[in-house]
Design a protein around this nucleic acid. Structure first.
Lengths: 193, 193
DNA sequence: AGCGTTCTGTACCGGCCGGAACTTAATCGC
DNA sequence: GCGATTAAGTTCCGGCCGGTACAGAACGCT
């Protein structure tokens, strides 16, 4: 009931995500955001609450879209395939043709002023969550005999996460997908099996 | 001649560096900076020019201080020792007790608004320079027979840089030095010799 | 002493920040 | 047709942003 919304929520959120991705949380002003979204500040506030909640939604969308490789990689049959899919996914997503270089959840709010702590903390949690799920997957691999019994799931997960983060910075630094794939290959040479 | 400066240039720059390190280029306001430096905006402008030049000076100081490991590691006798010193140095510097977690040159300006492009580009160059010097050191190692003739210096340098960047993000994520040293150990298991 | 030079503190600039009040417009059930 | 409800556009807010004009204070030089 009431007047129908004249813009598409999904499209607007997609545009906001792209702006946050390119400029980071603090670097993305409401003018930038609403300009890209094609709506006014009023409409944004009515639809999303405020800048922080818009960011949260954008990060959720990022996790379900560009960064969905982090979840789908867990479904690979072996731990090695999981790790490889994870690194290749990060190489791919940080160099998507129509999107900014790098990873939204890495460059979105690494260092910020005090006012942006919520956004910063939220990304810390997001990144740690991914690491924990990777660790749990590797724990299962040890239990299944897929990884040797002396393998350390936490250490392996942290290593893969670290290389993933590094790939994101390298992408922001201008490396292309082939370069990043090379890095992923090199990183996989440590793999126990 | 003229009225003598009442503050210490070095101390002021050190304080500014710490603020940029913690909050990033955009997140560090002139109020934050001059407050920490213990001087007024006027004094800062007279002494350093403007915010961008202050940032440049702060990054220079960072390279000669906390990040000097990136240069001194090159003097290690073997390529393996270079790589190991580099990764341990990054683990150490990103977890210095009195300083912010993470690396100034990584989190200083990864994603920014258009107005901060100069700061962003400057850090891209800084990071790439470090990578190039590492690559040249590994080229020398191949020429010296320290690395096998089929080793790829560029690939190795990029890999080490990637892990270094990843360590910086993990530090910002809250990992402590022991955790980061573990990661460095794991990463060194790929090493050809 | 007097002067040029340089630093310091205050007060201020236009502009943009994130956010909200208020009016107008579009759609419902009745 | 008629409220009730919800969205849209306009306008404005106080506050902080990076940056500066100006006047006074502390020196070296002659």
């Amino acid at each position: 009931m009431g007047r129908p919304r004249e813009f598409d929520l999904d499209e607007a959120l997609e545009s906001a995500m792209q702006v946050f991705w390119a400029r980071g949380y603090e670097g993305a002003s409401l003018t930038d955001l609403t300009g890209a979204m094609g709506i006014t500040k009023t409409s944004m506030y009515a639809a999303f609450g405020n800048k922080e909640q818009l960011f949260r939604k954008a990060v959720e969308r990022y996790g379900e879209g560009p960064a969905s490789y982090a979840t789908s990689a867990l479904a690979e049959p072996t731990a090695r395939a999981v790790a490889e899919a994870f690194l290749r996914g990060s190489a791919r997503t940080t160099t998507l043709p129509g999107s900014p270089s790098g990873c939204l959840t890495v460059q979105g709010a690494l260092a910020t002023s005090a006012g942006s702590r919520p956004a910063h903390d939220m990304l810390v949690c997001w990144r740690n969550d991914v690491g924990v799920r990777l660790e749990e997957r590797f724990q299962r691999a040890v239990a299944d005999g897929d990884l040797p019994p002396d393998a350390d799931p936490r250490r392996l997960a942290r290593y893969i996460m670290t290389v993933g983060f590094g790939i994101a910075v390298q992408a922001a630094n201008g490396l292309d997908r082939d370069d990043l794939d090379d890095i992923a290959d090199t990183a996989m040479r440590t793999w126990p099996l």
